[in-house]
Design a protein around this nucleic acid. Structure first.
Length: 338
DNA sequence: TGCCAGGCCCTCTTTAGGGCCTT
């Protein structure tokens, strides 16, 4: 089986060594290895207080492949729905579905599961890795304007791995796609029957994320330039479709992390921090076509691992650097009033 | 008529300007 890991110095050492390196400094995270294929591609080797293989200070840790079949994760109610959902995803499109019986009341119930202070709760938790669902995501759009342009493709990957850990679909923006040369996605492609509109997709997307979410834990969405581009786009699309971003969704932008790595190595900004530049910097091979959402997600997943390692940044550090949808809304209001 | 994204960061800086980054 071909493995991307072959090309990474960090991954050329035995896994237990990788884990030892990571765990020697921090509580958990960032040892994920690609196991091939488009689905279930990653396993994160977490550490916890239930140890088998090493120590972190006085704490024992274990190398524990985590799968989506974890007991107590809404398994009965969500697994079957997710399986149906996966079956409907083919050739880059999702059939709009009523089979999931998702309605707004269900979504509202989900939204009511609020965390008063998510960051604080996370910070107080010792088993961060077992609490946070880390999702790397990317979107393709018809342009840069969050007001005038629309999403035409979305892909995400739960870094926990396991079955159904990826989600990818084209989206019908109900308008002409002017920038086909950028991503290869044409008006014809997104206008095909079966390609969902955003308002059809959001409930399915939320159901997927909910199926991956750990009990009482937040979802951390990681994107490249997410603060300025992806997240505002998502917020606008949710608002336009009369949905709200769930309050237990947090977001993190990898660009500040990349800048931090550059500075930590004594390099001067502006060093390139584009996804392409970082891919080359870390010698990550391109999987699929650049500027297709899933391909960029695979690339960013590897970059996240490397940034995490270089910065010695565990999940708790990611949470500290995260922001919420309301944070962006507040900034916008503040700017408008000013 | 002309413009047309916007947030972040750096510097020849901070009551600013320009480049990067996303599609």
């Amino acid at each position: 089986m071909r493995t991307v890991a072959m090309n990474f110095p960090i991954l050329q050492v035995p896994r237990f060594r990788i884990h030892a390196l990571a765990s020697s400094c921090f509580e958990s995270f960032h040892s994920l290895s690609r196991t091939g294929g488009n689905n279930s591609s990653f396993r994160i080797l977490g550490c916890s207080t239930h140890g088998l293989e090493g120590e972190h200070g006085n704490r024992r840790w274990s190398r524990r492949p985590i799968t989506t079949k974890t007991e107590g994760r809404n398994k009965k109610t969500l697994t079957s729905k997710t399986s149906n959902l996966r079956q409907e995803i083919s050739d880059g499109s999702i059939a709009t579905s009523n089979k999931l019986n998702i309605n707004k009341s269900e979504i509202s119930e989900f939204q009511r599961t609020q965390c008063c202070d998510i960051k604080q709760n996370i910070g107080e938790s010792r088993d961060l890795f077992g609490l946070v669902t880390v999702i790397v995501f990317d979107i393709e759009t018809t342009g840069f304007s969050r007001v005038n342009d629309g999403i035409i493709e979305i892909a995400l990957q739960d870094l926990q791995g396991g079955e159904n850990s990826t989600f990818q679909t084209l989206v019908n923006p109900e308008r002409y796609v002017p920038n086909t040369t950028v991503h290869g996605i044409s008006t014809q492609m997104v206008s095909k029957p079966g390609v969902p509109r955003m308002k059809d997709l959001i409930p399915i997307l939320m159901q997927f994320v909910k199926s991956r979410q750990k009990p009482n834990g937040p979802v951390l969405w990681i994107g490249h330039n997410a603060r300025s581009f992806d997240v505002p786009f998502l917020i606008n699309e949710f608002t336009r479709c009369s949905f709200e971003i769930p309050p237990d969704w947090l977001f993190m932008d990898t660009i500040p992390l990349a800048r931090q790595v550059i500075k930590s190595r004594g390099l001067k900004l502006p060093q390139k921090v584009s996804l392409e530049a970082l891919r080359e910097y870390y010698q990550i091979p391109l999987i699929g076509s650049a500027h297709r959402a899933m391909s960029d997600v695979y690339t960013l997943s590897m970059i996240v691992q490397r940034l995490s390692f270089d910065l010695k940044l565990p999940v708790s550090g990611f949470i500290e650097k995260s922001f919420s949808a309301s944070d962006l809304s507040n900034v916008k209001k503040k700017n408008n009033s000013g």
